[in-house]
Design a binder for these strands. Structure first.
Length: 265
DNA sequence: CAAAGGTCCTGCTCGC
DNA sequence: TGCGAGCAGGACCTTT
């Protein structure tokens, strides 16, 4: 989402919305039909992000956009043909159009006139992983008396905002922690390492334009290339770059986990 | 048929 | 026994 945000910000900030088109409003939640009346005439003042939610600020309120698992946003000329899975479009007065493509329809477009951080989806989110609040000390404090598997805990937005399955697996490898380990049984020193690993993995992924496994596309409609740097995710059956052991994969809480049985304890 | 990068919601379990 | 908190799994949907 940060890759996408950076891609579209220079293209849509300060642009005025001429028309809002809903081609298929049944996403995770139905896109409010009132936006068709409400948005024209407003201009995009800010393009920000909280967790994996994109926030488009206007002087009347904020749009909250989520890409779900298969969504992408891109800016094209208004005359460009719609793709089969383009669900909504913002047409701007400069002749360009922001389009949300979302094959699986797990995404969302919501509107709030309150400060966006008060919205129910954002209100109980934990700290941003790239912000100053994520420290080994914080993770250590939060983890005490918790028996949950640490991979599941890292995916919990109330603990940390916006870390997904790929980056959780990658960071756990770099920190030498097995994804199945109980959260409360990780040392303070390992949490220091984990906090740094999370930041490093995310920074490098953003720098590489995101991770494309199947259909993720950035705002230019192109793939990211961080997948080339993945050390465990999707590498089951291949050798560990660090020790040569075979990377294992299994299911944990219905999501796949990948780890090296030798490097991660 | 299984699986896919997300995450809210529902209901179950556990501990007090 | 009853309650709240915390957690696992279901659900959402289409494509490969």
């Amino acid at each position: 989402m940060e890759t996408t945000r950076r891609g579209i910000e220079p293209l849509i900030q300060h642009q005025t919305i001429k028309q809002f088109i809903i081609r298929q409003g049944k996403l995770r939640w139905t896109v409010p039909a009132k936006l068709k009346k409400l948005l024209p005439g407003l201009s995009i003042e800010s393009v920000s992000r909280r967790a994996k939610y994109l926030l488009l600020g206007t002087n009347k309120g904020h749009l909250i956009v989520h890409l779900g698992m298969s969504g992408s946003l891109r800016v094209v000329d208004s005359g460009t043909c719609f793709h089969a899975h383009d669900r909504v479009a913002w047409e701007f007065t400069n002749g360009r159009s922001l389009r949300l493509r979302d094959v699986r329809r797990f995404g969302a477009v919501l509107w709030t006139e309150d400060p966006p951080e008060q919205h129910r989806l954002l209100a109980s989110l934990g700290p941003e992983p790239l912000g100053p609040d994520l420290t080994g000390e914080l993770l250590f404090q939060k983890s005490r008396n918790c028996r949950r598997a640490i991979r599941d805990w890292l995916l919990d937005g109330k603990v940390l905002a916006g870390v997904g399955n790929i980056y959780a697996n990658e960071a756990l490898f770099h920190a030498g922690i097995r994804p199945t380990r109980a959260t409360g049984r990780v040392s303070r020193a390992s949490y220091d390492k984990l906090a740094r690993s999370i930041k490093r993995v995310l920074r490098q992924a953003i720098k590489a334009g995101g991770t494309t496994l199947r259909d993720f596309q950035n705002a230019d409609g192109r793939a990211g290339y961080f997948q080339q740097k993945l050390v465990v995710y999707g590498r089951d059956g291949q050798t560990c770059h660090q020790c040569g052991s075979i990377i294992k994969a299994r299911k944990l809480s219905n999501r796949r986990v990948f780890y090296c049985t030798n490097c991660q304890l």
